[in-house]
Nucleic acid binder design. Structure first.
Lengths: 168, 168
DNA sequence: ACCATTTAGTTAGGAACCTAACCTTCTTGT
DNA sequence: ACAAGAAGGTTAGGTTCCTAACTAAATGGT
C-alpha cells in the first residue's frame, strides 16, 4: 500500500485551503446578501436582471433579449425564463416580441421596475462597502485582480472542457 | 437636484468592482464544479456531506447530526433534511436514531458511500489544483488570506444584524 | 414536580438553478 | 429554392436553497 500524492492528514495543499475558503466565504456572502435583497422584496438574481436592464437603458438600449440576460448573468435559458416570469408577474418587467426576429422576446423595465431598481441602486453602494469594509483599498484591488484572473482562467477551462460543443 | 455620493457613470468604486468580480467568478466556478461532480453522479452539496462524514470518520466520530452538518455547510435544517433524504435514497448514507437524545438523528456513511467518497477524494486534489492553477503560490496564499478575512467579517456582520435572535 | 422554553428534525411551499426535449423561426450550404 | 442545421425560448422534471409553521423531546426555572 503505497501513499502517493497524498497530503499528510489535515495538512492540505495551499490551493485546497484557498479553494475551501472561497467556497465557505461564498456561503457566508450569500447568507448576508439574500436577506438584504429580501428587504426590497426581491432576490439577488432578480436584482441582477433589474440592474442589467437599468444599465442598458443608460447606455441607450431600451431592452434586452432573454439570451443576452442569461449570458451576462451566467445562467441558462430555462432559468432566465423562470426569472423573467416572476419579475413580469410582479409587474417589474415586460416582455414584448421583437420586430426584427420573430423567435426573440425583448425584455424591458416597467416604470415600477425602474423605480425599484433606482431605489435599490441608491442603497447598494452602502451595502457593498459594508461587506467589503474589512479590506484596505490595496487589498480590495488585490481581490479584484485575483477574481478577474480566476474568472479568465475558468472561462478558458470551460472552452477546453470535453462535451462542450454547441451549448452556451 | 444635487448629486451626492454617486460615482460618475461606469466608473465605480474599487469595492464595487471587486464585489462584482467576486460574484461573477463564483458563477463561473459553479459552472465548472457542478459538471465535475455530476461526472461522479453527485452534486457539490452532496460532496460536501460525504466529505464531512469522511473527515469525521477519520477523526474517530462515526456519525454526525443533521444540525452539525447544516452548521458546517452553512445551510439550514430543512435543506439538510432534503440533502440527506436524497443521499439515503441513493444508498450513500444512513440515518439512525441517537441513543442519547431521542430527538436527534445520527448520519453515517454506508460502505457504498465510503467507497464513492474515497473515489472522489482521490481525484479532488487534481481538480482543485486545475481550477487554481492560474495562481502562483504567493497569490494562492493571498486569496486564502483575503477569503478568511472576508469570512470573518461576514460572520461578524451576521451577529450584529437586526432580527437575528435565536436562529442559526 | 411541572410548565415554559429551547432544541432537533420534518413538512409545506416557493425561488433559482440545472439538463433534456421540444417548437418556431432564422440562416446557410448546395 | 429548399432541406439541414443553428438559434431563441419554453416546458418538464429534478436538486438546492430558503422561511414559516409544526411535532416531539430535552432542559431549566420556580
Amino acid at each position: 500500500m503505497v501513499k502517493r500524492r497524498t497530503q499528510p492528514n489535515n495538512v492540505s495543499h495551499p490551493a485546497e485551503q484557498a479553494f475551501r475558503a472561497f467556497v465557505r466565504t461564498w456561503g457566508l456572502f450569500r447568507n448576508t446578501m439574500e436577506p438584504y435583497f429580501a428587504s426590497f422584496g426581491i432576490s439577488g438574481a432578480q436584482w441582477g436582471v433589474l440592474r442589467l436592464l437599468m444599465r442598458s437603458e443608460q447606455e441607450g438600449a431600451r431592452s434586452l433579449r432573454l439570451t443576452e440576460i442569461g449570458e451576462r448573468l451566467l445562467v441558462r435559458p430555462p432559468s432566465v425564463t423562470g426569472l423573467i416570469d416572476r419579475l413580469e408577474r410582479m409587474g417589474l418587467v415586460a416582455r414584448k416580441p421583437s420586430r426584427v426576429d420573430r423567435r426573440a422576446t425583448e425584455i424591458c423595465l416597467t416604470p415600477q421596475g425602474r423605480r425599484l431598481a433606482k431605489r435599490v441602486h441608491r442603497r447598494h453602494g452602502h451595502q457593498i462597502r459594508s461587506v467589503m469594509s474589512t479590506f484596505t483599498i490595496a487589498e480590495t484591488r488585490q481581490l479584484h485582480d485575483l477574481m478577474l484572473r480566476m474568472a479568465a482562467h475558468l472561462e478558458k477551462l470551460e472552452q477546453t472542457r470535453p462535451g462542450h460543443e454547441a451549448q452556451r
